[in-house]
């Protein structure tokens, strides 16, 4: 078999080329943890290319990832949205419960502070003016528990007096009602007067000019009328009007927000004594005892 010069030349080159990896391996075996200058140069040259390819691949990969994952994300989004709605509803309910809890706690604290006999009542309705002001409220205590004229209190202050009593409910005349009259005093200097309802926005009380009264002064019950327990807040002075003579007129804004009243206390002190001949008609016969 004839062997050409070209074949010998090629075989020589192949052997020389095969020696390259042998040399590389020998160098690596001698120092496995260090790159040669040539290796570092190749890496430096290829760095930008590899970075560009990696970046493009990442972009492409993230695009497809987003594309393919979109359906799953949509499902997850819908599930989370439904869960969020449920949690929001639960949160609203909890907030309502917390508010109710706060009101009940305040009502109980007021009961402890007030020495008079009282029974609780829940608001079951309101009458509003055309301007959405509360004119009177209706409570769930009827003839068995309430009598006309009984004082009605809330933790914030005086609400008014029982006006009309029906079988299962009663209407409460608010302190802002023009017919309402309550014995009050200025908490700071004990200047006494009779508080009248002025309008659906507030009340007025006339006191002697001898007493210095300023807007912001607290008006509280004086207890003189023996219907309202002494020292219960009624409202705050918003304006002092000097009248002709020795009187000054105080314009009072009630402490109670009538549109936010849920639970009130009916003071039994002003109630007629129960008829002893028919004990089953009184509150105690219903399992309700006056609260001290």
């Amino acid at each position: 078999m004839a062997v050409s010069l070209r074949s010998i030349q090629n075989a020589t080159i192949v052997v020389v080329l095969l020696a390259i990896p042998v040399v590389l391996l020998r160098n690596t075996a001698e120092n496995p943890h260090e790159l040669s200058a040539f290796d570092r140069s190749v890496r430096r040259i290829g760095g930008p290319l590899e970075a560009a390819v990696s970046y493009s691949t990442s972009m492409m990969g993230s695009f497809f990832e987003r594309w393919f994952m979109q359906a799953r994300l949509q499902d997850a989004n819908e599930r989370l949205a439904a869960e969020n709605r449920e949690l929001a509803q639960t949160l609203r309910e909890l907030a309502e419960l917390a508010e109710e809890n706060t009101q009940l706690r305040r009502a109980l604290q007021m009961r402890d502070r007030t020495p008079a006999d009282m029974i609780p009542a829940e608001r079951v309705g309101v009458d509003q003016s055309p301007f959405f002001r509360v004119l009177n409220i209706r409570i769930d205590r009827g003839t068995r528990f309430a009598k006309p004229g009984m004082a009605v209190l809330s933790p914030d202050g005086v609400v008014g007096r029982v006006d009309k009593v029906f079988d299962d409910y009663s209407d409460v005349m608010l302190v802002t009602d023009a017919r309402s009259k309550i014995a009050v005093e200025v908490a700071r200097n004990r200047a006494q007067g009779i508080l009248h309802g002025d309008s659906e926005y507030g009340c007025i009380v006339d006191v002697p000019k001898d007493y210095e009264v300023e807007p912001g002064d607290l008006i509280q019950t004086s207890g003189v009328d023996e219907l309202f327990p002494k020292g219960h807040p009624v409202g705050r002075v918003v304006e002092v009007e000097q009248l002709v003579g020795d009187q000054q007129r105080l314009h009072v804004k009630p402490e109670v927000r009538f549109d936010r009243v849920d639970v009130v206390w009916v003071v039994l002190a002003g109630a007629p004594r129960p008829d002893t001949t028919e004990p089953s008609q009184g509150p105690s016969s219903m399992g309700l005892q006056p609260i001290r």
Binding site: N10, I13, V14, L17, L18, I20, P21, V22, V23, L24, L25, R26, N27, T28, A29, P32, L35, S36, D39, V42, R43, G46, E50
Partner: peptide, 30 residues
Amino acid sequence: PLGLALAIALGYLEDLHQGAPIGTLTMAYA
């Protein structure tokens, strides 16, 4: 010879990329 040179070059690049001991894949490719 040119094909072998290319094989050695590709093997060397793979060595660098994969972090293999330099010369391992170069030799295997060759």
